[in-house]
Design a protein around this nucleic acid. Structure first.
Length: 214
DNA sequence: ATCCCGAGGG
DNA sequence: CCCTCTGGAT
């Protein structure tokens, strides 16, 4: 039996998030749609801090698909070698850049199908781009949101698809667009994986998580 | 279910 | 040492 916060508690929780951070933003650095796609693709199983450290130098010389192709896979690998899974990511970014040049005039497509057809871009990355760049009602579920959603009862689910639906179905409409970043930031700084900081949690009154250490 | 895979925290 | 980090492809 999965417990899910009721409508009243959901409103209270997101009102708290909104008061603390009226305009939450992601912390992945990017300068256009292309660099956003690349940054999000690179962020798989990596911290945004580590990704930013690598992309700062990379995007200074390669902020378009054409420039990325000019650099090539070998040199790209050197830039992102400090990020996990770097071989696969380098290959995907080069392939993806080639497809954007060949099929989309060097632009980033705005449809989910086109985004997800790019190598290294799955549902989660596509949803981030749709939400952040194209301002579409898409809910990306990452490791933070999956954990926070299940612990708290905000958006529980056995897999990410169920959690995504729980957000769409149960987060009040006016909070939908910012829900992604509110939940991520909460997971990153308060509801952390190992030892959640329930002592300083702003939504503790409504959370269903049983903290046995305090 | 498995592999990919470095950096940082505890 | 072990765990975690805005996953995706096979």
């Amino acid at each position: 039996m999965v417990r899910q916060l009721d409508y009243h508690d959901m409103r209270a929780v997101f009102t708290r998030f909104q008061q603390a951070e009226p305009e939450p933003k992601g912390e992945l650095e990017h300068v256009n749609a292309f660099t956003l796609v690349v940054a999000v693709a690179l962020s798989a199983q990596a911290t945004d801090i580590g990704v930013n450290k690598a992309t700062r130098a990379l995007f200074a010389i390669a902020d378009t698909p054409a420039k990325m192709l000019a650099i090539g896979e070998e040199r790209l690998m050197e830039y992102i070698k400090t990020i996990g899974l770097y071989r696969t990511k380098a290959r995907n970014v080069i392939k993806l850049s080639q497809i954007l040049v060949d099929q989309y005039g060097g632009e980033v497509p705005s449809s989910r199908a086109a985004l997800q057809s790019l190598p290294g871009v799955g549902r989660k990355t596509a949803n981030v781009v749709l939400n952040m760049w194209f301002h579409q009602p898409a809910q990306a579920v990452d490791t933070h949101i999956f954990r926070v959603g299940n612990r708290s009862g905000i958006c529980p689910g056995r897999d990410v698809d169920v959690v995504e639906r729980a957000i769409e179905d149960n987060v009040p409409a006016e909070f939908q667009h910012h829900a992604h970043h509110w939940l991520i930031l909460h997971g990153r700084y308060i509801c952390v994986a190992r030892k959640p900081k329930c002592g300083i949690c702003p939504i503790r009154d409504w959370c269903l998580y049983e903290d046995k250490t305090e």
